[in-house]
């Protein structure tokens, strides 16, 4: 890209002719047209974000105060009625408990497994890239497909199920994994998400591990630290920022869980059982299930869930910052 002589300077030099004030448009475009280019690259995405994310969020908030059955331009204002209906709905409250149980199981488990794999792989001298790919590949599988495999093959409650076949070989009997008569469905739900996401977070943690200066380890080694003490006093504190991000992402993703729950547990008639029902699934069933279209109720539910995620996020941010400040002291 070559510019006509006299109109451009070198990097950082304003393209001004001596004694002349730049035009308004020129100033708006900024040095080397940086503002122009910034706008050109950012605006399409900003427009997409506005149209597809912020406008729908604002619209949901608006709808949540109306009776909006089968319409996006409702007229009947109902105030907080949709909110009070949901908050007094015992099934909605118990769906929040399902989320908590899911998060308590999946967040620490994924973190520990990802960290374990990251530590193992970063200590590996040969074939590191190969194993990194091996563990990362499941991330590319869709939740829907994985859920179908889990449901039809692995955790099928009949004698055809892979795990049940193995159990019978070992002298056990068939387990109805997903039927709700026991808590077997949690095994399916947690193992599925673990398999799908552990590789992704492993990569994030490997990146975090690579950022820890080698000198720190050398200094610690000279002081006689090794093994568990290295992990406890060097690796984990240095990984704090990455870990905070990983845990936050894990939590938000757990909150947004829908696909694997729906595809593992929903009935063939479009119904969903009362157990293992996280908030998004419950909201979908009561506001959009079948041919239902109660957008006011759905909007109110979305707002409540957004508020809860924000509270969690702020709380976690606060905890992490407190930890950093303590370390700096």
């Amino acid at each position: 890209m070559s510019a006509p002589a006299g109109t451009r300077g070198g990097p950082g030099i304003a393209p001004l002719a001596a004694g002349r004030r730049p035009t308004w448009g020129r100033r708006l475009r900024g040095r080397q047209d940086r503002n122009l280019w910034f706008g050109l690259f950012v605006l399409p995405f900003l427009a997409g974000l506005l149209v597809f994310v912020y406008v729908p969020i604002a619209w949901s908030a608006y709808l949540s105060f109306f009776e909006a059955r089968a319409t996006v331009t409702p007229t009947k204002f109902v105030g907080w009625a949709n909110y009070s209906y949901l908050l007094s709905d015992p099934e909605f409250r118990s769906s929040l408990l399902v989320f908590v149980a899911f998060a308590v199981l999946i967040v620490p488990l994924t973190y520990v497994c990802s960290l374990g794999l990251a530590l193992l792989l970063s200590g590996l001298r040969v074939a590191q890239a190969f194993f990194r790919s091996v563990f990362f590949i499941p991330t590319a599988v869709s939740y829907v497909i994985a859920a179908m495999i889990w449901r039809i093959s692995f955790f099928n409650g009949g004698r055809f199920g892979l795990i049940n076949s193995m159990l019978r070989q070992l002298g056990g009997s068939n387990i109805d994994w997903l039927g709700g008569a026991n808590y077997g469905y949690w095994v399916a739900l947690v193992s599925l998400r673990l398999w799908l996401q552990v590789g992704f977070y492993m990569i994030l943690l490997i990146a975090g591990l690579n950022r820890i200066p080698q000198e720190t380890y050398e200094a610690a080694a000279i002081d006689g630290a090794a093994g568990w003490r290295l992990l406890r006093y060097i690796t984990l504190p240095q990984l704090r920022a990455t870990s905070a991000a990983v845990l936050m992402l894990l939590l938000i993703n757990a909150f947004q869980a829908f696909d694997e729950f729906w595809n593992l547990l929903s009935g063939v008639n479009g119904t969903y059982p009362p157990y293992g029902r996280p908030p998004l699934v419950h909201l979908f069933v009561i506001s959009l299930g079948g041919s239902n279209q109660d957008l006011g109720l759905g909007g109110a539910g979305t707002m409540i869930l957004t508020a809860i995620i924000v509270v969690f996020g702020v709380a976690q941010n606060w905890l992490t910052n407190r930890g950093v400040e303590r370390d700096e002291r």
Binding site: G180, T271, P273, Y275, I286, L288, G289, D294
Partner: peptide
């Protein structure tokens, strides 16, 4: 027989028959 009624009905049915 709306979605929420059907859903509550199915949930109760599962609890009675399965559990």
């Amino acid at each position: 027989w709306t979605g929420p009624i059907g859903d509550a009905f199915n949930s109760a049915m599962t609890n009675v028959i399965v559990k």
